[in-house]
């Protein structure tokens, strides 16, 4: 038996929204510690890692580990019917065919419940081991989203370089080139400041298409954390308060092949 109640249902909705363009079908793994999704996107280029700890929920019970095969598009359809302030309850049997989703609204005293047919997804669990990174950048998520969106106009790939000066996004394409530099600074509001922790400068190049997909998680978090080291995948991390995160991993482009496109 699995049962979990999240007072702020919107978080869950936003999580699904953030991955639905990237991942069609994924297993939601439920365990005593919490719920998580770890999978590659459907084109097998990037990796998504989502975690929401048990203590993020106001009620959480999981008797035995479960894998719930979800179709993200269908789940998003059901979340469309959720009110802004609703709390959400997820329920499933031990060997489930369905996932029950209940939307409760205290103000209007309504309870809506839905059943989502589950899929049987046969795949392997993948993860990127935690490693120390040479550069860690914290910046406003909205700002990151805007930059990525804007640079897409110019080209397919974007170089992110992190130096003492700041963080620089460079793009070049057939119509011209673009260059955005953000210096580290503290703002009045904590969430608007840009912080850089750096051991050595790093410069990597990425497909903008995927970075753009990642920014769909912007509503989840005020700040985004980018972690980079030479020749390893970038981590685009959207922390969800202290209880969880949505992380994306993307391998840097290498010069010789554009096959990852």
């Amino acid at each position: 038996m699995f049962e979990a109640r999240l007072a702020n249902g919107k978080t869950l909705k936003d999580i699904i929204e953030s991955i639905k363009d990237l991942v069609n079908d994924a297993n939601l793994d439920c365990s005593e510690e919490g719920i998580s999704i770890q999978c590659m996107d459907s084109s097998h280029v990037s990796l998504v890692s989502i975690s929401l700890a048990a203590n993020a929920f106001d009620h959480y019970r999981c008797d035995r580990p479960l894998s719930l095969g979800l179709n993200s598009a269908n789940m998003a359809k059901i979340f469309k019917m959720m009110g802004k302030d609703d709390s959400v309850v997820l329920k499933a049997e031990d060997e489930p065919d369905n996932l029950t989703m209940m939307f409760e609204n205290d103000k209007t005293d309504t309870i809506a419940d839905f059943e989502l047919k589950l899929m049987d997804i046969d795949n392997e669990q993948l993860g990127i081991p935690d490693t120390p990174y040479k550069c860690t950048i914290q910046m406003p998520a909205g700002e990151f989203q805007r930059i990525i969106r804007d640079l897409q106009v110019l080209g397919d790939a974007c170089t992110i370089s992190c130096t003492k000066e700041g963080i620089r996004f460079t793009v070049s394409g057939s119509i011209g080139t673009g260059n955005i530099l953000i210096r580290a600074h503290d703002a009045e509001k904590e969430e608007n400041s840009v912080k850089i922790e750096m051991e050595e400068p790093v410069e990597l190049s990425f497909a903008l298409r995927y970075l753009n997909f990642f920014t769909k998680a912007t509503p989840l978090s005020a700040q985004v954390v980018l972690c980079m080291s030479p020749e390893v995948p970038i981590v685009v991390d959207y922390p969800i308060e202290d209880t969880g995160f949505v992380k994306f991993y993307l391998a840097p482009k290498i010069d010789e092949g554009d096959e990852e496109e």
Partner: peptide, 15 residues
């Protein structure tokens, strides 16, 4: 509703 997602083998430059 029953699907299989293969895991690609590692090759240079891929995740």
């Amino acid at each position: 509703r029953k699907i299989f997602i293969p895991t690609p083998s590692a090759r240079k430059g891929s995740l």
